[in-house]
Amino acid sequence: MILFRNCITLSIIAIVSLSFSQCASILKLQDTIAVDIGEVYYQSWVAGVKEGGSGINIYIPIKNKSAEIVLDSVYFKRKGVKLEETNPNLYIGRFSIATTKPDIVMTNKPFAEYGNKAPKIKQDSPFDLKEDECVLSFTERGKRKYYKITGIIKNKPIFYPSTPSKKL
């Protein structure tokens, strides 16, 4: 009977400890960031050629940034991408959507499938965001942090023209 009580007590302690350890893995958003962020906006685009694809670019203008902060990636519309620094004052996140699937070779000959590329794994957002919100991922003094940006403006989409036909 004493052994049974000890087992139940240990089980309860283990369950409670595990439930508290999961709280530490939740991503915490920062209230402030040592970066002066301008007006963030996004713009969808469509390529003018058949297999050019489409996507969304999110533009994050930076007016002034602490040297200790390195902007890394952005989560927007349930996806995450690495940020691209086009100049010291502008970061762009490029979310592209492929319109066609690549050709893959399926055969019973082992070396015939050599040129196939591994499928890309989708990087879903761990954040529950509204239509006009994104989360900026950055490192400050080597520690990963997250900051939510709200009020993102939607600009008119860009429809790139198709390539001109060759006239003989």
Score class of each variant (00 low, 15 high):
42 Y>Q: 09
42 Y>S: 09
43 Q>P: 07
43 Q>Y: 08
43 Q>D: 09
44 S>M: 09
44 S>Y: 09
45 W>I: 08
45 W>L: 03
46 V>C: 08
46 V>K: 15
47 A>F: 08
48 G>D: 04
48 G>S: 04
49 V>Y: 15
49 V>M: 11
50 K>A: 12
50 K>F: 10
50 K>G: 05
51 E>G: 11
51 E>W: 13
51 E>H: 14
52 G>A: 05
53 G>F: 03
55 G>I: 06
56 I>T: 14
57 N>T: 08
57 N>Y: 09
58 I>Y: 00
58 I>A: 01
58 I>W: 01
61 P>L: 01
62 I>R: 01
62 I>M: 00
62 I>E: 01
64 N>L: 04
64 N>W: 03
64 N>R: 10
64 N>A: 04
65 K>R: 08
65 K>T: 03
66 S>F: 03
66 S>K: 02
67 A>K: 12
68 E>H: 06
68 E>W: 01
68 E>F: 05
69 I>E: 01
69 I>T: 00
70 V>A: 10
70 V>R: 12
70 V>Y: 07
71 L>Q: 00
72 D>V: 06
72 D>R: 09
72 D>C: 02
73 S>K: 07
74 V>N: 00
75 Y>G: 04
75 Y>D: 10
75 Y>Q: 05
75 Y>F: 12
76 F>V: 00
76 F>W: 04
77 K>T: 02
78 R>Y: 12
78 R>G: 08
79 K>L: 11
80 G>L: 00
81 V>A: 02
82 K>G: 06
83 L>M: 03
85 E>A: 07
85 E>S: 05
85 E>K: 12
85 E>Y: 06
86 T>C: 02
86 T>S: 11
87 N>W: 04
87 N>T: 00
88 P>D: 03
88 P>N: 04
88 P>H: 00
89 N>F: 11
90 L>S: 03
90 L>Y: 07
90 L>Q: 07
91 Y>A: 00
91 Y>E: 04
92 I>R: 03
93 G>Y: 04
93 G>K: 02
94 R>I: 13
94 R>Y: 10
94 R>T: 14
94 R>K: 15
95 F>A: 01
95 F>S: 04
95 F>R: 04
96 S>H: 13
96 S>A: 11
96 S>C: 04
99 T>K: 15
99 T>M: 13
99 T>Y: 14
101 K>V: 10
101 K>F: 11
101 K>Q: 14
102 P>C: 07
103 D>A: 13
103 D>W: 15
104 I>M: 10
104 I>K: 12
105 V>R: 12
106 M>F: 14
108 N>R: 11
109 K>S: 11
109 K>H: 13
110 P>N: 03
111 F>P: 00
112 A>M: 10
112 A>C: 02
112 A>N: 09
113 E>F: 07
113 E>Y: 08
113 E>S: 15
115 G>L: 14
115 G>I: 14
116 N>W: 09
116 N>I: 02
116 N>Y: 08
117 K>S: 12
118 A>P: 07
119 P>H: 06
119 P>N: 05
120 K>S: 12
120 K>E: 14
120 K>C: 08
123 Q>N: 14
124 D>E: 14
124 D>T: 09
125 S>G: 01
126 P>S: 01
126 P>G: 01
127 F>R: 00
127 F>H: 00
127 F>M: 03
